[in-house]
Design a protein around this nucleic acid. Structure first.
Lengths: 305, 305
DNA sequence: CCCGAGGTTGAAAATATCTTTCAGATGTGA
DNA sequence: TCACATCTGAAAGATATTTTCAACCTCGGG
């Protein structure tokens, strides 16, 4: 394995530093009702919760100690004690930086200027969450696999299909053999061709899109290195993924479908993957990039003014 | 008990924020030998001590639990538990001091964690720039035109093509007739069909992509309302655009092609456009969104867990 | 040199807190 | 509706923290 960079920013399994709110949102769907209560309380008022004992937090959320401990575990801590320590650290952090106030949901009657501001803010938030929640070890592994892959197949449908295409375009541009499959049937047909040394990447926000899981499963069975980019790391897609890259799950509103922020998150992950690969294949990537830029220049009509 | 020296410095009962080391020094003279051992350990390695239990810290300092608790009391905390929480907060603070200089360009030898941080930062910056530079009047006009359009044609090639597809997907989802053209020839062919009341949208970062300008020109000549989404509002594309929406042009580096941030910027503009349209057509958009969500739910396999 | 007051210290008991277990409650799909 | 799986909290069990208390220094005076 590649043991060069990691460790710099903790990450892997030990508790997340400031990504707690994001983590809560990511994991919320896989939580039971009462665990969500606890998670919300924790995300909503870290400082306050840090002052509470298990029993206290259980009472405040109207649940039991057992549930509190279970939630702490789900969030990646060995137990409540450690979650509490993390909360204390988080509280100290919060104190320094105050956040703006564009957090409200987008409403039907918002003036257009507000829409722009809120949307931009939300997307920025999504980016921050994604960056904070991204496991750099997994990412590093994915980069390593992709850099040396004989070929790279990418699966995605719906909105995720565009992300897949984006990745394929970029990888092709630096000289790798990448293909984004849009037709699920053809994707499976092609996945059969994969073997050890190849890479298959599935992109699905829900983590349970059958049309995407199926080709990944085939690739996995064939011995290819499989990567899942999903907002639900506990979803079925992860079964067949050697490396799971988690995208953030921002809150959605009626007007702002989840697809919107998940796309932003997916693109960031995909960009990171791309840059990582470009770094590793710099010798060939740099000239290839330059060449493709050169080729494009001729497709542009000279500017007027 | 003798209550002579304490209280000298700062607070009384509330825990010290970051002045712990100072407090230790102030109080040291009034401490017994073994308490000093504990205090030194705490001041010297807050983070490390935060990870220890009473027993652990007692062992490390070669003292007993009782002494540790006594020291915590002397430092102004109700007990060791609270001292520990404070230490955790302190440790978190220290950590935040070292930022990896996220404003710098992405280098070939950047560790993967830095790449993630820098990329996220850059994209956030791009979003902020775009939101700030977006002309809401133009956007409003574009929204108005699109909301009532008989049909909407979208042109984009390369990376911008994906943005166009994204917009088309979303508009279709709320019941509008939108189509993203990828083939320049077909785009022109179709543009001929447009007439007053229709909308044509061209997406080009450079503002001078011939393949995109050409269909827009045809649409413009046919009397359709034309919209350009470009990073160069002074480029040729604007000649044929009734409304110009400006995307931001972030600096690019060798590893980070301009396409990356322009895509982010374009997507934000496109999202704003979409939300605006959704607001205006809320009556039909809301049920359509709900329906499409419903339809998708059946394409997902149930979670395993 | 011995003694004891005053203070310090840690072993162990007492308490508080956290974790695990388990059986009943609550869904969920056939 | 039943069978099955999951969720949940009460209470038992395990740890961690606090308190207690007697041993033990330390240091002056007899």
């Amino acid at each position: 394995m590649t043991s060069d960079v990691k460790e710099i920013f903790s990450s892997d399994s030990p508790p997340a530093p400031a990504a707690l709110a994001a983590k809560v949102r990511t994991l919320a769907p896989s939580m039971t009702r009462s665990m969500q209560l606890v998670a919300e309380a924790v995300a909503g008022d870290p400082a306050g919760c840090a002052a509470l004992t298990v029993t206290g937090l259980a009472e405040r959320t109207g649940t039991s100690e057992a549930t509190v401990v279970r939630t702490a575990r789900l969030l990646g801590y060995p137990g409540y004690r450690d979650l509490r320590l993390a909360l204390a650290g988080l509280a100290a952090h919060q104190e320094s930086g105050r956040a703006p106030a564009v957090t409200a949901d987008i409403a039907v009657d918002d003036p257009i200027a507000d829409v722009v501001a809120k949307l931009a803010y939300d997307e920025q938030q999504t980016l921050a969450d994604t960056a904070a929640g991204l496991d750099t070890v997994q990412l590093g592994a994915a980069v390593a696999a992709a850099s040396t892959a004989r070929r790279i197949d990418i699966y995605g449908v719906g909105a995720s299909s565009l992300v897949g295409q984006d990745l394929a375009q970029k990888l092709l541009r630096i000289g790798l053999i990448a293909h984004a499959h849009m037709d699920p049937h053809l994707a499976v047909t092609n996945a059969v061709q994969l073997r050890s040394g190849d890479v298959a990447i599935a992109i699905t926000h829900s983590g349970s899109t059958g049309d995407v899981i199926e080709p990944l499963r085939v690739a996995f069975d064939r011995g290819a290195t499989t990567i899942a980019i999903t907002g639900r790391p506990d979803g079925p897609v992860s079964q067949y993924a050697d490396h799971v890259l988690t995208t953030s799950t921002a809150r959605e509103s009626e007007l702002r479908p989840a697809a919107m922020s998940s796309r932003t998150s997916q693109l960031l992950v995909v960009d990171c993957l791309f840059i990582g690969v470009a770094q590793r294949t710099y010798e060939t990537a740099a000239p290839a990039l330059a060449a493709s830029y050169e080729a494009l220049a001729h497709r542009h009509t000279p500017r007027t003014r």
